[in-house]
Structure formats: structure tokens, C-alpha cells
Design a protein around this nucleic acid. Structure first.
Lengths: 356, 356
DNA sequence: GTTAGCACTCATTCTCTCCGAGTGCTAACA
DNA sequence: TGTTAGCACTCGGAGAGAATGAGTGCTAAC
């Protein structure tokens, strides 16, 4: 059954009032504050209908109405109009992100701070990770006698290294030749390509360094494996600014859920399923998580290059300003892709100052 | 003025009762539950004295007494007896830390989880960092045409890398020779040794690669600079389990303080001043932080090798089980040094499986 | 179809009282 | 002189009503 225009207008008015006040909204208030040209009594009738249809709930008989999850869903899908950030907001956001970052971890934690500051909600930022990557290069270097550093670079631009000890009589040349050998043998391979047969060939070719090769290859495989998307949470305490979390037990339940990163990253994984647009909104129980029953999750997906993907998002009360959150996330998301691209794949060729 | 043995015993009884119940303790309870051989009235008199001397506070006339900060301080310094973890506790702790860690960030976040699980308080873990380090090695490698990776290793065992783009006509040999050159020129230097004169020499020797060298050297300096001690916080929501944080405003104040890493790391810095023992306890206002007025900070310092230092600790209500916290932290602290040592400086030579 | 009016509901707030844990003081006791 | 019993007093907290008022649903009139 379709909603009449009048019902839509009333539903929208109720949801928006509720979003801004967090109080159940009554017919009288709608009649007074919104120019619908209707009396409270009429609105009352419509509200009764909307409740019957499942768009509204009533906390108790003598309170006003609040949106149901179905109501929010309808609002988000059909009623919400895009919110445009003001030029001021945009430029201040841009400015706050326009600084030099030197480490990945720093970017991620700063961005999560920015998101939570802008939205006033707890923010989530996932480290970029690749589903399936190929080896771009593996190198070993002798740091000093007995101490070797393995450096692995994947085609996603991710660099990792590990330090191992070897016996003292291994010198620069040996390391270099192994390094050279492995590099030519393995470059371009994905984890799946490390077949027993191929490994056998490698071990045979350099039989005397078997143990050492094994360690290196193990590490390479580890780097090529599905890297978990590590996740940062910023401004978790922001949730306490919302009246729905005045209750200390609710607050504790939510915060201890959020405290465990794996909870959040599992939830993010679920939330991405079957979503093709770049922004996904999960309302209350749609998140599939009990501790999130009073909150919504808004997530944007970013890409760096064509291999690395990650997500940023916020968690807020179901009663949140979705429109504003969505536009803020979109803006930050774009900027983040840029920053990470520069960082992981080097400066843009065009204004390249490192060439010579 | 010295405290009589009887006063000490009473003070201790009061503090320990308060620690376990979180309720102001009255004279009757002390008389009943502790075998001091004194009547409530006598204890009442002693309590009045202790209050006058500043060791106890009274929330209001008709409540029992609670320890003042001075009381806690005296308890921690003179009354507290060491708590020994049971064998069970120890072995379960050992077990939970005995797994293979592959990335520094993982160790840190797992350890903070373990601390907060064991103590039931919010945990703090600082990444190990060096005050002043020397360059152990710098290398460049051509990942593919136009793309160079710089790898820097400091004598603290820290490895960092950066990716930069260069023009396409730079080949393997060029990179190798620059790498070789810089490595011999810079190895062993600290940030202070990068004098203008020395840099001039380097630039002159390889004038045609000036821009490139500049980028590399900037990066090296960045790696040698005082690395901030980045800090992780685990189980922040645990603080809500304590009755002193039933009040949502207190909880919010505390949690939003904790939410900002720089707050915590500043506080840690302060807390280390002038402390030579390995465990430092700051009670309430001793932390120097308004938001911590109801909480205490217990911190242990660890070292990896002789260059890297960091801290682990917990934040709990002033009314916390200091003895138990201290022994847990000591145990975890030792284990953490071990884990990090293995990780950053390679496996122990003795059971070295990588030699050949 | 819309609206005014009215009886009814119910969470919230307040006021008041009662209760009990705990104190401080005094007087008696060893 | 130190210890203890006894008693009056304090004061926060819990509980019971009562008052308040925002909001509803229904009915009857426009």
C-alpha cells in the first residue's frame, strides 16, 4: 500500500522532529511547527494510520510517536533529501585533512578523529587491505653480521618487513644472491601460485639454504594472505552525548561491544554484503548485532588504486541526522582515497619532485 | 607524627574494606569483621583521629569513612602487602601471551586486551620507542620502473619504509650505487650528526641526484627523530563496571579524556618523571589531570634491548586493588619485553632455526 | 473529510515521611 | 587512663502519594 503525499509529509515531519529533539513527537507539535495546514486532530488520525502500518511506534499511551525501524528505513530510502555541507564546513574539513601524514597508522587514527569530530558520533576507519595480492618484490638485506631483514612488497603497494637472525658466516654476497634468486622466482605470484612443485624446484636449486628459504617463503605467504582489515575506532565516548545512552547499562553494553575491534570488523564485513552503492546504511537490528539495536551504522567504502579497499563509517543512534552524516562521509571518503593513494603509491607523477 | 600500630591496622582495615565494597565503612563493621579486639566505640575514636590527620574523609555526617588520597598514598607506600598471583593465574596469563605475533601493532593491541581482561580496568600500552637512535642501515630498492622503496633501520631495531616515485630512466644500477653510497656515508649517525657540512659533502659527491638524495635524507632524519610513543587503550568501557562511574556525566568526562590518545600519552609522560622504580602509582589528583580526579594510574616501564622503552599500565578507580594490579602488570611487563625482543631483534641465537 | 472538545492514560516530578546506618559525646567501668 | 556502653542526633535514600501535563482516542459538530 502506497503512502499518500499527506502521510509522507507527516511521517517526514515526525522523523525530523524526533531526530532533532529525541522526544516523542505529538500531534499538536506537528500541527504548530510544520505548515501542513492541518489541525492536530487530523494529524492524530493520520498518525494512528501510520502506526498501524508499522512506520511509527508509541513508547506508551500518553506519549507522542517515535519512528519505527521501518519508518527510518522509509525515510532514508524515500524521504530524506540530500544535505549539502556549507562552503565553510567543506573548506574547514578539507583544511583539517590537508597536512602531511607520514605513517599509515597516523592517517587512520587522524581520520577517525576527524570523522568523530565532524559528526559527533563514534567513528570507524578500516585500514586498506587487499583481497588477493601478488608479490611485486621480495628482497633481503644484511643489516649487520648475523642479522637479515626481509622486505616484501605486494602489488597492492603494501610493504612489510621482518627481522631474522642467521649464522654469522653468511655474508653480503650470499644474501644478495638468494635475494636475487627469490626475487626472480617469486615476483608476480599470488599465494595460490606457491604450489608444492614450484617450491620443490626452489628448494632444490638452493638446497644448502633450505631452512632460510623456508622462513622467507613463509613470510611472503603471510604477506600475500588475506590481510585482515584492521579497524580503528575514534570518539567512542561521543555516543554518551545522546540521551538514548543516559542509561548506564545501555552505555556499557554498547561501549564494550565497540571496545573489541573484532566485533566492529565483523559487523563491517556483514554490512558490506550485497551492497553495490558506495554508502550503506544499516538501521538498528539491520546490523544483525544485539548491542546495536538502538544504533545505526553508516558506512562508505573507499578504494586505493584498484587493489586496496577499506571502509569508513560512523555509529550513531537510530535517531541520527542521516543526511548530514552521509555527505560528510562522502567528502572525507574521497579525500582519504587521495591521501592514501599518494602515500602508498608515491607522489603523483605530474608534480613529481623526486625524479631527476 | 607517626601512626601507632593500632591506627595503622585500623586504617588498613578501612581501606581494604572500602576497596572491596565501594561503600563508606563504619566503625561497627570494622569491629565485627576484623579481629582487632576493639569495640566499635574505640575504633570510632581512632577513626576521628585518622580523619583529623587527613587519612580519612567523610562523605557526610551519617556515613562511614572513606580513604582520602593521603590515606591511599600511605596504604600504597607502607601498608599494602605484596599480592602473589596464584599458579593458575600465572599460567593462564602466560598461556594467553604465548602465541605467535607477527606485527608490532598486533602485539600491542593484544597485550592491551589481556591487561584489561586480567585487571578489569582500562589498559594502556605504549609502543616501544627510542629516545635517540642511530642509523643502522639505509637501503633503496627499485620495485619496478619509476618506483623506489627506501628502507631505514635504526639501531633500536625499528624498520620503516617509504615509497617514492622517480623518473623512469633510473635503473637498478643507479639505485644500487646511491644506496651503497648513502649506506656507507650515513650508517652509525644520529640525527645530530647530520650537520650542514656533512650533507654538503654528500650532495656534492652525487650532485646529479640532489633532489632524490634530499628526499631520502629527510626520511632518514624523520626516522631518527624522537618518535612519539604511540599509545593504545584497551577495554576503556571497563571503567563503567565501577560504581563511582554510575553517574553518566562522570563517565562521559572520563571516557572522552581517555578517547584522545594524546591526553593519555601526555599523562604517561608526566607520570614517569622522577620515578626510578619500575612501577609508578599516581593516585587521583597526583596524575595532574582533572578528569582523573577519581581514578589512579598504575604504570610499569619496560625496555627492549637497551634502546627501546615503553610503558604499560591501567587506569582504575582510586579504590582499586593496587596489590593485585601491580603484580599482574609486573608479570605481563616481563613477558612483553621478551616478546618484543624476539620480534624486533630476531629469534634468540640459542634456538636459532634460521641459521644454516 | 476536518476539526473542536473532552475524558482518559500514564510517565515524571515533587513532597513528605520513615528508616537505618553511622557518628559524637558522655558517663561508667577496669 | 584507656576502653566501652548507651543515647541523642544527623542525614542520605527509599517509598508512597499527589499533582502535573503532554498526549491520545473517540465523538459529535462543522
Amino acid at each position: 500500500m502506497e503512502l499518500s503525499d499527506r502521510k509522507r509529509a507527516i511521517l517526514q515531519a515526525i522523523i525530523e522532529d524526533y531526530i532533532s529533539t529525541a522526544e516523542p513527537v505529538g500531534s499538536r507539535n506537528i500541527a504548530k511547527n510544520h505548515d501542513l495546514g492541518l489541525s492536530a486532530a487530523t494529524i492524530r488520525n493520520e498518525m494512528a494510520d501510520l502506526e498501524e502500518m508499522g512506520y511509527l511506534d508509541k513508547p506508551h499511551t500518553s506519549a507522542g510517536r517515535i519512528p519505527s525501524e521501518m519508518g527510518y528505513r522509509f525515510y532514508v530510502d524515500s524521504l530524506m533529501h540530500r544535505y549539502s555541507l556549507t562552503m565553510d564546513e567543506i573548506s574547514s574539513l578539507q583544511r583539517s585533512m590537508d597536512r602531511k601524514y607520514n605513517q599509515l597508522e597516523n592517517v587512520i587514527s587522524e581520520i577517525s578523529d576527524i570523522i568523530s569530530k565532524v559528526t559527533n558520533y563514534p567513528a570507524i576507519v578500516e585500514l586498506p587491505a587487499a583481497q588477493k595480492s601478488r608479490l611485486r618484490n621480495v628482497r633481503m638485506m644484511l643489516i649487520e653480521k648475523g642479522s637479515v631483514l626481509i622486505v616484501v612488497v605486494t602489488d597492492a603497494g603494501v610493504v612489510r618487513n621482518r627481522h631474522i637472525n642467521v649464522s654469522d658466516n653468511i655474508d653480503y654476497e650470499v644474501i644478495d644472491s638468494i635475494s636475487e634468486f627469490l626475487s626472480t622466482q617469486l615476483t608476480g605470484l599470488a599465494a595460490d601460485d606457491f604450489t608444492a612443485a614450484r617450491l620443490m624446484l626452489i628448494y632444490e636449486a638452493m638446497a644448502q639454504y633450505g631452512e632460510f628459504l623456508k622462513v622467507v617463503i613463509e613470510f611472503v605467504l603471510e604477506c600475500l594472505g588475506n590481510s585482515e582489515n584492521r579497524v580503528y575506532i575514534g570518539g567512542a565516548s561521543n555516543i554518551l552525548n545522546n540521551p538514548e545512552f543516559e542509561n548506564i547499562d545501555r552505555a556499557r553494553e554498547f561501549l564494550s561491544f565497540i571496545d573489541r575491534r573484532e566485533n566492529v570488523s565483523n559487523m563491517l564485513r556483514l554490512s558490506g554484503e550485497g551492497v553495490d552503492e558506495s554508502i550503506s546504511i544499516k538501521i538498528g537490528s539491520e546490523t544483525g548485532v544485539e548491542a546495536m539495536r538502538d544504533t545505526s551504522l553508516v558506512v562508505a567504502s573507499y578504494s586505493v588504486g584498484d587493489k586496496l579497499h577499506g571502509k569508513i563509517g560512523i555509529i550513531g543512534p537510530k535517531r541520527m541526522d542521516y543526511a548530514r552524516v552521509v555527505s560528510s562521509l562522502e567528502l572525507i571518503n574521497g579525500k582519504l582515497s587521495e591521501i592514501l593513494g599518494r602515500m602508498l603509491y608515491g607522489e603523483d607523477r605530474k608534480d613529481d619532485k623526486n625524479g631527476f
